[in-house]
Nucleic acid binder design. Structure first.
Length: 847
RNA sequence: GGGCAGUUAGCUCAGUUGGCUAGAGCAUCGCCCUUACAAGGCGAGGGUCGUAGGUUCGAGCCCUACACUGCCCACCA
């Protein structure tokens, strides 16, 4: 069997990639070794894979950041670790509901709850399958048998266990208080789900009348909240309003009287300096309402409509009411001034899942206490090692600025039920026993009697994050029969930086409450993929392109950026190599050209392997073969050097840094130089020298392939199967192990210097010829070179290579003074070269 | 307003304890179809490393101030 026949001239990823994906799956190559894990927990490397939210298609950003984890997992496996790399889907909760509504056209409230939940499960399954297919096509080494879904009954059980445990520890509370509310989706939500949007508005100046004094002018952007006004605030230092302090003013149009109070939070220079406090326009209103024990006047109901107390506004939507209010006030000459506010000057908090402006509704909600343990949370966050380290600052700034406890109840249909019952008056709570979980409180009743009326099962479901924050527990099969002892903390959590305040934060929080420990040793934070966009605004300098980075939109940029579309144009290995080309935590610009470059690399790897292996036709590798030539020692030394760097970089999750070094090794050392050096030896060297070259080629190429295998698993597998398997006796490339980096031998240290000197000499010869446009094949007479004594000694054994390079008849070292003035100097070195050509030969070329 | 990053070649970016003349890819130009690879090879041009100071024998890297860009957080009357 000849290698030449086995090794096609071209690498065809379209055929090769699916072939090995199937092979790996059949061999169950990436399955976590449960038995070994139980015996040897210190060898486990466990990854808390992000379960992508089932809210539509995956985008290139997912591919980018998941690829980093995927490559890391392969490296860890090659280091002999028992890698647990699961696959999950976050298919519970509001995102799935919204997707289901969109796909099916059925709204949650239009059908029975159970009916809608069924639709949601179907939707979840459909998209989960799509996700899985994509991961497989990208060559991901997830253990697909370890897949979990957050709506599964085991996930529900663990999520509910977490709820019950926290309740028993006094960390869960049910409170009736103003909560963040989305009027569009009719649910409460948490601080983490707030997104700031900039919406233009207007300041309306309105007079509040009082007997014996001129009317007090207030400025508001929300005149529709006048009926909810419960007081007016001014700053205690603001002398202008001193006469009004403690007095009551009349709310225009509605006529109820409210007190004028002082508080530091009222800004003198904003609006008129006097501000109305309504229940509730913003968080300051809530603080004032609490602090000053103000009454509650609710103007907006949970559907975003105005309430009965709003008189002529009742029943209107908020926006409509605002317009109507201005009209009504204007009719009575109660609008003193209208000042438009530009969008950029008016940040408005919105709910990230609906885009609707935040409202505040007083309803009983479930909370997990966080505001009182900020210091502890920061401390526990410091016990996690963050990669890159500066990402910890985001976590800390988020924790420091927390102002709401975590609202975990959602007034929605499809989620993990809150395992609790409440008495009719809301004063008594009964939470399920651990043994009952999972449970839907709407379908069963507690056995103990209710102290007041009947138990009512809690209809709210949990925030999706309440479940995804226990993914380490789901992975550890917490409380299940086959619980994985000592699985926690997990080795690492990979995720993108946008969900530090949600996923990372909540996971740390829960781990702290449950176990007083970190959930994982490492948090590895990746950047985003941005799309390049020509800058159109502002001045565009002539001939200069400005590149603006913007977020990729799933809907608008589908064709260009959808992973399945990209996979039609680029092979998986190329996409992976491109993804690995960003520094850790840094956003990257989408660059299909970069994938094309990666494709070129794959061709190069293919061709170099093909050539090297064809040279070795009939050779049987044997570790006992003596390495004799300095170039061989040099090649081996370079491999070791790079291997060290690769291991160190991968240890720090700097896959890009490792790749840069590998690329230099492969492209420059191996292809441009080593292979070229060896060419002459395999033609004319002694048997011993040939053996040395072959063995070095074999070892070097295999080592290079091993180090590239995590990045480009398909092509390395293909080459391995064709050429190496027969000698290595292991089923797959990906079952090979990376040895620990070894120190250089004395010969290798020497070889390193010799190789460098040779590269220098060859470089000078190349430059000499290139500058004179002398063709590669033109034979030279004699090469003259000058260099210091030390370099000369290093070059002594390799001069034949230089001679071969220029097809010269001889090569000799001369004194520097003996060289012509236009001899070629090696850059920055003492070495110079002059090549003597036969005029006839040079003419032949030009003629 | 507070914080975190970044600013290096025309473009996109490396540059890891401070150390020879600052690198790569793309783009540009020149040469070469060389028995692995023209989807390639060899070579060339191109940089006051954001600005101004400081520390040091020596600074792209450390310190200070400033400018600009991006992000996170706060700001919502």
């Amino acid at each position: 069997m000849g290698l030449a026949e086995d090794f096609p001239t071209r690498y065809e990823p379209k055929n090769v990639e699916p072939k090995w994906q199937k092979f790996w799956a059949e061999k169950k190559l990436y399955q976590f070794d449960e038995t070994e894990g139980a015996k040897n927990p210190s060898k486990i490397y466990s990854i808390d894979t992000p379960p992508p939210t089932v809210s539509g298609k995956l985008h290139i950003g997912h591919v980018f950041s998941y690829t980093h984890t995927e490559i890391t997992s392969r490296f860890k496996r090659m280091k002999g670790l028992n890698v647990y790399y699961p696959f999950g889907y976050d298919d519970n909760g509001l995102p799935t509901e919204l997707l289901t509504e969109k796909d099916s056209g059925v709204r949650a409230h239009q059908v029975e709850r159970s009916e809608f939940r069924k639709l949601c499960r179907e939707t979840g399954n459909k998209y989960s399958q799509l996700f899985r297919d994509l991961w497989i096509k990208l060559g991901f080494s997830c253990d697909f048998d370890s897949a979990y879904s957050t709506i599964s009954s085991t996930s529900q059980k663990i999520s509910q266990w977490s709820f019950v445990d926290l309740y028993k520890k006094g960390k869960v509370e049910r409170r009736k208080e103003p909560a963040l509310w989305c009027t569009k989706l009719q649910t409460s939500f948490s601080q983490a789900e707030i997104e700031v949007e900039y919406i233009a508005g207007q300041f309306v100046h309105i007079p509040f009348t009082i007997e014996g004094l001129p009317p007090l002018q207030i400025a508001t952007t929300r005149p529709e909240l006048l009926p909810a006004c419960v007081s007016v605030f001014v700053h205690p230092d603001d002398e202008r309003f001193k006469p009004y302090w403690g007095k009551k003013v009349k709310v225009p149009f509605f006529g109820h009287e409210v007190p004028v109070l002082t508080d530091d939070k009222a800004q003198m220079d904003k609006g008129t300096g006097a501000v109305m406090c309504c229940t509730f326009g913003d968080t300051t209103d809530i603080q004032w309402w609490r602090q000053h024990k103000l009454p509650l006047r609710e103007a907006i109901n949970k559907f975003g409509k105005m309430t009965e107390i709003c008189g002529p506004l009742a029943g209107l939507k908020i926006e409509e009411a605002r317009q109507k209010m201005i009209e009504l006030l204007t009719e009575q000459n109660l609008v003193l001034k209208v000042i438009p506010i530009k969008a950029e000057d008016r940040p408005v908090n919105t709910y990230e899942r609906s885009g609707a402006p935040v409202e505040y509704i007083v309803q009983p909600q479930w909370f997990i206490k966080v505001c009182d343990i900020k210091e502890e949370l920061i401390e526990i966050g410091r016990k996690v090692k963050w990669y890159p380290d500066f990402m910890r600052a985001r976590y800390e700034s988020w924790v420091q600025n927390l102002s709401w406890d975590w609202a975990i109840s959602r007034q929605r249909a499809f989620g993990v039920p809150i395992p609790a019952w409440v008495s009719e008056d809301g004063q008594h709570i009964h939470v399920a026993d651990f043994s009952q979980l999972p449970i839907d409180p709407l379908e069963s009743k507690p056995s103990i009697p209710c102290p007041q009326g009947e138990w009512k099962g809690e209809a709210d479901v949990l925030d999706t994050w309440a479940t995804s924050s226990v993914t380490p527990l789901i992975n550890a099969r917490w409380t299940l029969d086959n619980e994985r002892k000592s699985f926690l903390p997990m080795s690492m959590r990979p995720q993108a930086h946008d969900i530090i305040r949600t996923w990372a934060f909540y996971t740390i929080l829960k781990s702290y409450y449950h176990f007083n420990d970190v959930p994982w040793a490492h948090a590895v934070i990746s950047g985003h993929v941005k799309k390049p966009e020509a800058k159109v605004d502002g001045q565009q300098l002539a001939g200069q392109q400005f590149v603006k980075k913007t977020k990729i939109s799933k809907s608008k940029d589908g064709e260009t950026y959808a992973p399945d579309k990209i996979l039609e144009r680029q092979c998986a290995d190329a996409i992976r190599l491109w993804s690995a080309g960003a520094s850790l935590g840094v956003d990257i610009l989408f660059d299909e050209n970069g994938m094309a470059e990666a494709q070129k690399f794959l061709n190069k790897l293919w061709n170099a392997s093909r050539f090297a292996l064809m040279q070795m036709e009939g050779f049987t590798p044997d570790s006992k073969i003596q390495t004799v030539n300095p170039e061989d020692h040099w090649m081996r030394a370079r491999i070791k050097e790079v291997h060290q760097l690769v291991e160190k970089s991968v240890e720090e999750y700097e896959l890009h840094r490792a790749k840069v070094e590998l690329d230099k090794l492969f492209w420059i050392t191996f292809c441009d130089n080593y292979i070229e050096f060896v060419k002459c030896r395999v033609q004319s060297g002694s048997a011993e020298q040939k053996q040395s070259a072959f063995q070095t080629l074999y070892d070097s190429l295999l080592m290079i392939l091993k180090m590239y295998a995590p990045y480009a698993p398909h092509i390395t597998e293909e080459i391995y199967q064709i050429a190496f398997k027969r000698f290595e006796n292991v089923d797959s490339m990906h079952q090979l192990r990376l040895p620990d980096p070894a120190a250089l031998t004395a010969q290798e240290t020497q070889g390193l210097k010799q190789g460098e000197a040779l590269v220098e000499l060859i470089g000078a010869i190349r430059t000499f010829k290139s500058k004179r446009s002398i063709g590669f094949k033109i034979p030279a007479e004699e090469i003259h070179f000058s260099c210091d004594a030390e370099t000369l000694k290093l070059l002594q054994d390799s001069l034949v290579i230089a001679q071969n390079f220029a097809s010269a008849q001889s090569v000799k070292s001369v004194d520097a003074k003996a060289l012509p003035a236009d001899a070629q100097e090696a850059p920055g070195k003492t070495l110079s070269v002059w090549i003597q050509y036969n005029e006839e030969n040079l003419k032949k070329k030009s003629g």
